[in-house]
Write a protein that binds this DNA or RNA. Structure first.
Lengths: 198, 198
DNA sequence: CGCGACGTTGATTTGCCTCAACGATTGTGG
DNA sequence: CCACAATCGTTGAGGCAAATCAACGTCGCG
């Protein structure tokens, strides 16, 4: 039992950065989220499905990506511990997603279904605040990313990326970093050669 | 007095799409938001300032945009009635913004300061839900825009835009649409010529 | 070991940008 | 109310950043 609770520690600690919960609310939290383990290479979500879960990453690393009509892949996020993984549009509207979430390493998550999510927030408004703040922060980072992608060159975007997320570099294949930054993998390779020369 | 309340109708109606408010909460709402009118060409926010308000657009049209180091402008949003205008990062962290919000037409807004916002949400958790849903939806649209910008060509992005936002086309100068879509104004002009030929 | 995914490198192409010149339109002060 | 400036959209010439295509070496893995 205690061992099970152990898994929720990280989620609880993360939430307590933004809100104060009492024991009843912590109980509700632990009952609402289900633990799941996925192996490297497996998918947490695939295009064509409905995104049924919001997932809190405990360990490992996920890639959220999109395939366009020509079958070209574009990574949109790399999800590390203490991040949230979902296609929120699909999750909240029960529409089929065109996104994929794939494990880049063995990964553990805590998942909550939409029904349970709605119930939890109805019962305990404190969670409304938590998700308000989470979405608010996510919106701010998205915003920054948009500005970067529109106002920087490919080389600047890459330099920016390795300065900001040095850790991710070792976890994620280079080609995924390239599509995340909106450039062809071959081009990133040339940029790196260029940069190492100096 | 009734005439003043009139101005809040649109905000109240908008909020009631997502939450149910009682009279006390509606009063609180009306007391928290201040009315402001700005003329075409004026700024609601300028780079270097701190974004002190979240603004709900009642009438008119705003452009949220960014100037990079070389002085090049990039539009990020066009804000029409019933949309929200702010640089949330600056607003919530009290940092100076590098964004600008400019009126493309005479515009009326309702504004709330951060202090008041925090108080209002503390007193009435129902508003937490409203803003959770608003940010959640904003996050979804941002997400879609990111996918489009990374996986479509300039021509496809433009066609997509005029199909999705036919109204904005008449309100917004063409060059602003171009920078919004991430292309040079001259290039958009050429695309349009190209498309009209068919 | 041998296959398949990955990163690298070079040759070539292209989508889009830059710069500059030109009407058309707007708006502004005298 | 008009003249003039400022801003905007258009068009063309030229250039560059980045994509595409293809070949090759390397490595991890079944």
């Amino acid at each position: 039992m205690d061992k099970l609770r152990e898994r929720y520690k990280s989620l609880i600690a993360n939430m307590q950065k933004h809100i104060k919960m009492n024991d009843i609310e912590i109980d509700e939290l632990c009952n609402s989220f289900k633990y799941k383990k996925i192996k490297k290479g497996q998918y947490l979500l695939q295009a064509g499905e409905v995104c049924r879960y919001q997932s809190f990453v405990l360990s490992g690393c996920l890639k959220l990506h999109h395939l366009n009509q020509e079958g070209k892949e574009h990574a949109l996020h790399f999800l590390q511990p203490a991040w949230w993984a979902a296609d929120l549009y699909s999750y909240f509207n029960s529409t089929t997603t065109n996104m994929n979430i794939k494990a880049l390493a063995d990964t553990e998550v805590l998942q909550i279904e939409k029904k349970t999510f709605d119930k939890m927030l109805d019962k305990h408004p404190i969670f409304e605040r938590f998700f308000r703040v989470i979405y608010q922060n996510a919106l701010c980072s998205q915003h920054k990313k948009t500005i970067d992608s529109i106002s920087l060159s490919a080389k600047e975007r890459y330099i920016n990326f390795i300065n900001h997320f040095p850790v991710i570099q070792s976890l994620v294949p280079q080609k995924d970093i390239a599509t995340y930054l909106g450039m062809a993998p071959e081009y990133l390779s040339k940029l790196r050669k260029d940069l190492s020369r100096k």
